[in-house]
Design a protein around this nucleic acid. Structure first.
Lengths: 230, 230
DNA sequence: TACCCTAATATTGTTGACAATCAGAGAAAA
DNA sequence: TTTTCTCTGATTGTCAACAATATTAGGGTA
């Protein structure tokens, strides 16, 4: 109700990104300018600018004169995302393990509690987002904003990839106990163990992907359209 | 003359980025919409969109109602850029050394010749750009477009950093023989040596920076304005 | 002379209308 | 019945005028 102040393009970006992170926006979904204008009560200029930024982050695809759709990363792109994540996150971990403080550990543990609470209260959307944000929180401890921003991009793309190729309804973006173990290793100052856990954790997620049967969401309509002939 | 086709915002971005890479656009330079419209013969809409993208890449800074200036990275940002570059470039090297082909080596050697030629013909701007592009060419061999794009950003920022804090007129972005040695190590398949050379090369550039005496370029006018009192 | 306040100018930000392009419906022909 | 063509509606792209804001120049006062 107090939303008098007009939203900026950054705000629109954040809202769209959050929806992607919570997997409430499926890959292939068409985003018309008009609909977003209505949803966020902003002008077309703002939406248009947001589109440009979202495209830069590989969250949407813009086709000339045909508008915006939520991106559908290819298997090759998925491979690159995980390769990049392993490189960046392990690189940041090396710094973090040297500089981490007790306060940081506490914050991470608080986050773990929030994850658990969301899962137990069956707030799946929130849980999915929190598991993604765990990695960002961890990364922030290394104090490199450039790598943080890059990793943020990668986490959003991971969400799209899992939505496309991930396991079914149970769809755990990050399986239960991995994060806790990682924090424990970090608290113990055991770098090589923490590193192994992190790599293993990411590789596990990647290994669970199934590229074979899925179709890009965007083609669903056309698939159904021809399905009635069979 | 055949430039009838209107330039897109990507084109404008590229042109501005190239100018930064060649250090023909100093940090702190004011970029008015109107002037860029005139230079590139495009509408304000296009320039404005280009600004948004350039801001995302940390190449310019946008201040509300005050327009765009070429970014002046702080010493802390410089530190983060080099930290990121070492992480990303060594990570990519690990992949490259496994997959590199003779054709790739040849392309790298061709590039080295081009660098040398530019230096000998005293085409400094071209030489500066080529030394930057060497790192991008090397990165492309690893076949990860996401990391490529990120590194591209970092290379542009490096150019700004060297312009601000780098050594004087001689200002070599990448000193003479380092690139050739790196290619030799790569051709020999000697990973640890290539890795050492790469890290050493980047650290050398960083070590040559001098943060103390420089002032942000943008303040030059005000500095001169008060200089006459002395 | 130095400082501050006010007015004029220039630059950026926003909105709306108009032009260009695309998707889908419907009709005509094979 | 199926295919193709055209036309209509809807969506995106572009531009120009207008509003808001910042910078600069000038005049007045201490």
């Amino acid at each position: 109700m107090a939303n008098r102040a007009a939203l900026t393009e950054e705000d629109v970006c954040t809202r769209v990104r959050d929806s992607v992170l919570e997997q409430r926006l499926a890959p292939g979904t068409k985003l018309t300018e008009e609909s977003l204008c209505a949803v966020f009560s902003v002008g077309r200029t703002t939406v248009r600018r947001a589109f440009l930024l979202l495209k830069r982050d590989n969250i949407i695809e813009l086709q000339k004169n045909r508008g915006a759709v939520v991106a559908s990363p290819s298997p090759e792109e998925a491979r690159q995302v995980f390769e990049s994540r392993i490189l960046v996150e392990t690189g940041l971990l090396k710094t973090t393990i040297r500089a981490v403080t007790l306060t940081d550990i506490e914050r991470l543990r608080d986050h773990l509690l929030a994850e658990k609470a969301a899962l137990e209260s069956a707030d799946i959307a929130r849980w999915i987002r929190l598991t993604g944000e765990f990695h960002l929180l961890l990364a922030k401890l290394a104090g490199n904003e450039l790598l943080d921003a890059f990793l943020e991009q990668l986490v959003f793309q991971t969400s799209l990839i899992v939505a496309l190729y991930g396991p079914g309804e149970t769809g755990p973006n990050c399986s239960g106990d991995d994060h806790r173990q990682l924090v424990d290793a970090l608290a113990a100052g055991n770098h090589s163990h923490a590193n192994d856990l992190l790599v293993q954790h990411l590789q596990e997620i990647e290994a669970q992907l199934d590229f074979a049967p899925q179709q890009p969401f965007g083609d669903l309509q056309s698939i159904f359209g021809e399905a009635k002939t069979a």
